[in-house]
Design a binder for these strands. Structure first.
Length: 274
DNA sequence: ACGAGGTCCTGCGAGC
DNA sequence: TGCTCGCAGGACCTCG
C-alpha cells in the first residue's frame, strides 16, 4: 500500500539509519521475493559493499551500493525494511524473507507477510533502463500542468487508470488517484483525453497538494515502522473518499460511492465529481 | 496501439 | 470447532 509519500518516508528513515554501513553477509530464506538475480548472485554482489544512501523513485526504495549496484525494494502491500539490533523484539522480524548483516552488528531485514513485494539488484545500466520506463515524479518541478496534459491527451483510458500507470506518472497508487480526482472534482471513469485544460490544471493541483499533505503527515510525527498499519495512521485524516463508501462527501454532502474499475475499487462522489 | 484477464502470495472473514 | 473458499492489492505478463 505504500505509495509515494509513504515510500519517501521509508527511504529517508532508512538513509538515516544505515548509510555508511557495510554489508558483511546476507541470508535469504524466501528466495521467491527476488527479482533480476539469483540468491547466489545476490550474495556474491552485496557482500562487502558499503551502503551509500537510500532514496526513492516512484514507489521503489533504492539503496545505492559502493559497487555501483543498486538494491530496489518494492514493498507493495506488506513489505517492510526493518533495521534490527539486539534490543528489537523478535516478533518485529517475523516474516523476514532475507537478512543482511551489517558491520556494526545490526541487520537489515526485508520482511513481507504476503510476499507480493519484491527485492531486486541491478547494475547501473539495468537500473537506468528500468527507471527510464517510469513516468515523471509528481513532486518534481518538471511535473507541470502542461506536462500532465501531454500525458493525458494521448490516452483514451479512464483517467484513474492513467494516474495509476507508473509509466505515465510515477508513485501514485489507488489511494492518491482517488483523492486527487476528488480534490479536482473529476469523475474517475472519464477518458483521460476528454479533460479540458482547466480540469487538467485542477487535477495537477489535486495530485501535488494531496501528495505533499500526505508526505507531511507521514513525516510528522515520525512513524513507528513496527506497526504494520503505520502508513495509514498518518494519512487517515487527509482521506476524503478512499475507503469511505456510504459516508457523506465533505464538500457537497452526497453519499460516497464505490465502483469497480479494472477490478479495483474506486471511491468517488457522484454529485461533485463530473 | 489497446484492453482483458491471469499470476504472484497469504491472512482474514464468511459460510457451512 | 474446523474446514474450505474467495477476496484483497500493484506490477507484470500473455493473449486477442
Amino acid at each position: 500500500m505504500p505509495e509515494l509519500p509513504e515510500t519517501e518516508t521509508i527511504a529517508r528513515d532508512l538513509n538515516e539509519a544505515i548509510s555508511g554501513s557495510v554489508i558483511e553477509s546476507i541470508r535469504i530464506t524466501k528466495p521467491d521475493v527476488l527479482r533480476e538475480v539469483s540468491p547466489r548472485e545476490l550474495s556474491r554482489r552485496v557482500k562487502g559493499a558499503r551502503i551509500e544512501r537510500s532514496w526513492r523513485r516512484a514507489k521503489l526504495i533504492v539503496i545505492d551500493l559502493s559497487t555501483g549496484d543498486r538494491i530496489l525494494v518494492q514493498p507493495r502491500f506488506t513489505g517492510a525494511l526493518i533495521v534490527a539490533d539486539e534490543s528489537l523484539d523478535k516478533s518485529a522480524t517475523a516474516y523476514s524473507t532475507l537478512r543482511m548483516t551489517l558491520d556494526d552488528g545490526r541487520s537489515l531485514h526485508y520482511c513481507d507477510v504476503r510476499r507480493l513485494g519484491t527485492f531486486a539488484l541491478m547494475d547501473q545500466e539495468r537500473f537506468d533502463d528500468y527507471t527510464g520506463e517510469l513516468g515523471k515524479e509528481p513532486l518534481d518541478r518538471s511535473f507541470t500542468p502542461s506536462q500532465l496534459s501531454g500525458v493525458l491527451r494521448v490516452s483514451s483510458q479512464a483517467i484513474k487508470k492513467v494516474l495509476m500507470d507508473q509509466r505515465k506518472i510515477a508513485g501514485i497508487g489507488n489511494i492518491y488517484a482517488n483523492e486527487a480526482l476528488w480534490r479536482a472534482g473529476i469523475d474517475p471513469s472519464r477518458a483521460a483525453r476528454s479533460l479540458k485544460t482547466k480540469e487538467i490544471a485542477a487535477l495537477h493541483k489535486g495530485i501535488v497538494s494531496v501528495l505533499w499533505r500526505a508526505l507531511e503527515c507521514c513525516l510528522h510525527p515520525a512513524p513507528d515502522f513496527r506497526d504494520p498499519e503505520w502508513w495509514f495512521q498518518g494519512i487517515e485524516n487527509t482521506l476524503q473518499v478512499y475507503d469511505l463508501e456510504g459516508k457523506s462527501c465533505r464538500r457537497c454532502g452526497a453519499t460516497i460511492q464505490r465502483i469497480e474499475q479494472g477490478g479495483r475499487s474506486t471511491y468517488c462522489c457522484v454529485r461533485c465529481q463530473k
